[in-house]
Amino acid sequence: MQTFSVVIVALLSWLVGADVDLCHPRCDCLDTTFYCRRRSLQHFPHDFPNWMQNLNISDNSIGNIDGEDLVKLTGLQILAADGNNLTDIPRPPWNMEQLRELSLSRNALSTLDRGALARFTALQELDVSRNQISVLSNSSSFPTSDSVLRTLNLGHNQIENLDDGCFHDFVNLIELILTRNRIRSLPKDLFSKNIKLEKLDLSRNKLEVLDSLRFQELNSLQVLNLRRNGIRNLSDAAFYGLDRLQHLYLDGNRIQVVERRWLYGLRSLRTMNLSVNNIEKIEDNSWDGMEELHWLQSCRPTWTSAP
């Protein structure tokens, strides 16, 4: 029995040692997760095992990820490559059907490669925030219409122009983050295909006018963040169609008059923030039809609930 125990201990020690040997020398590993952050990597390693599922190579100096190397990682589900020197999204030579999350924040991307994104057929979360993207066009920015993407983070870029159809392929999108860009206007049909969208963040842009019917197809939207833009004028029915909207943030703008004509249709609204504006007048019937509104923050400090 003692001899048998010694054999078992020796076998377990060999297995543990084998697992350690399978880890890349520049990484720390736990099961199928490889943590290679801040390891002074200049290039994407070529010798990762194909059974690896989660890879973090953030905060290195990697300038390129060869699609040929990436497609060999047939088990990879999550890739974080934030804080490198990437100028392009990796383009695998054929579809990767298992990658679900891709994070490329804090790189040097100037555009989004439609062909590259189309290769990630199972991608649900994409973070390309804090890059140098300036234009989103319908013809060259996004994947095909069978995209299953649910979360898209484009915050902290240099986006000024949005083509009408630049989000049309994202029919399954739930959350869209566009904060801290330079967007000055919203095309009429910008969100016409995003009927599943629940959260939209347009805060800290350059919007001054909010035209009518820009959100009319977003009948699943629950949170709309428009704070700190510079909005002066809201057209009639600016929020028409947002039947399920519960939270609206308009603080930090230049709104002078609150009127029912641009608030019309917000029947499910529960909270609204109008603080830090230039409000001079609030029409008496502005809140008509908002039976669910129970918290209102305005320029008047005494208003912390619906009037």
Results as ranks from 00 to 15, higher is better:
residue 153 N to K: 00
residue 40 S to F: 13
residue 197 L to G: 07
residue 6 V to P: 12
residue 35 Y to M: 00
residue 3 T to N: 13
residue 194 N to G: 08
residue 307 P to V: 07
residue 4 F to N: 13
residue 145 S to R: 15
residue 293 L to K: 01
residue 143 P to E: 10
residue 289 G to E: 14
residue 239 F to C: 04
residue 152 L to T: 00
residue 224 L to G: 02
residue 232 R to S: 11
residue 2 Q to N: 10
residue 252 G to Q: 12
residue 305 S to P: 07
residue 290 M to L: 10
residue 238 A to N: 03
residue 122 A to R: 02
residue 192 S to W: 08
residue 241 G to K: 04
residue 154 L to I: 02
residue 165 G to V: 14
residue 45 P to M: 07
residue 19 D to M: 15
residue 66 D to P: 03
residue 87 T to D: 11
residue 75 G to C: 01
residue 125 E to I: 02
residue 129 S to H: 06
residue 224 L to A: 02
residue 176 L to R: 01
residue 248 L to H: 06
residue 107 N to F: 07
residue 149 L to Q: 00
residue 255 I to L: 15
residue 147 S to H: 00
residue 84 N to E: 01
residue 117 L to G: 02
residue 102 L to Q: 01
residue 120 F to A: 04
residue 20 V to F: 09
residue 54 N to W: 01
residue 233 N to F: 15
residue 104 L to E: 05
residue 300 R to N: 07
residue 24 H to G: 05
residue 268 S to K: 03
residue 280 E to G: 04
residue 232 R to M: 07
residue 9 V to G: 14
residue 175 E to T: 03
residue 2 Q to A: 15
residue 59 D to E: 12
residue 222 Q to S: 13
residue 106 R to P: 04
residue 152 L to S: 05
residue 282 I to F: 11
residue 292 E to I: 10
residue 277 N to L: 03
residue 25 P to Y: 09
residue 165 G to K: 02
residue 131 N to L: 09
residue 61 S to W: 12
residue 139 S to P: 07
residue 196 K to C: 05
residue 181 N to M: 05
residue 189 D to G: 11
residue 73 L to G: 00
residue 185 S to P: 06
residue 45 P to F: 03
residue 278 N to S: 12
residue 226 L to M: 14
residue 231 I to R: 04
residue 108 A to N: 04
residue 211 D to Q: 12
residue 101 E to W: 14
residue 180 R to Q: 10
residue 74 T to Y: 13
residue 1 M to C: 11
residue 192 S to P: 08
residue 104 L to W: 01
residue 118 A to N: 05
residue 94 W to R: 05
residue 135 V to W: 14
residue 262 W to N: 01
residue 63 G to L: 09
residue 7 V to R: 06
residue 265 G to D: 02
residue 29 C to V: 00
residue 278 N to W: 09
residue 282 I to V: 05
residue 224 L to W: 06
residue 102 L to A: 05
residue 147 S to E: 06
residue 180 R to V: 10
residue 148 V to C: 13
residue 266 L to Y: 08
residue 174 I to D: 09
residue 158 Q to I: 10
residue 210 L to K: 00
residue 281 K to L: 10
residue 198 E to C: 08
residue 118 A to S: 15
residue 198 E to I: 11
residue 14 W to E: 14
residue 296 L to T: 02
residue 161 N to D: 08
residue 14 W to Y: 10
residue 112 L to A: 07
residue 119 R to H: 03
residue 104 L to C: 01
residue 30 L to H: 05
residue 48 F to E: 00
residue 12 L to V: 07
residue 131 N to D: 03
residue 245 L to N: 02
residue 130 R to D: 08
residue 9 V to E: 09
residue 295 W to E: 14
residue 131 N to H: 01
residue 6 V to E: 13
residue 70 L to V: 01
residue 142 F to S: 08
residue 143 P to F: 12
residue 168 H to N: 01
residue 103 S to Q: 08
residue 126 L to G: 03
residue 162 L to H: 06
residue 108 A to G: 14
residue 17 G to H: 02
residue 18 A to F: 15
residue 60 N to H: 01
residue 171 V to N: 08
residue 236 D to A: 10
residue 306 A to W: 13
residue 241 G to V: 06
residue 177 I to D: 13
residue 88 D to V: 08
residue 59 D to V: 11
residue 307 P to W: 12
residue 283 E to I: 15
residue 297 Q to H: 15
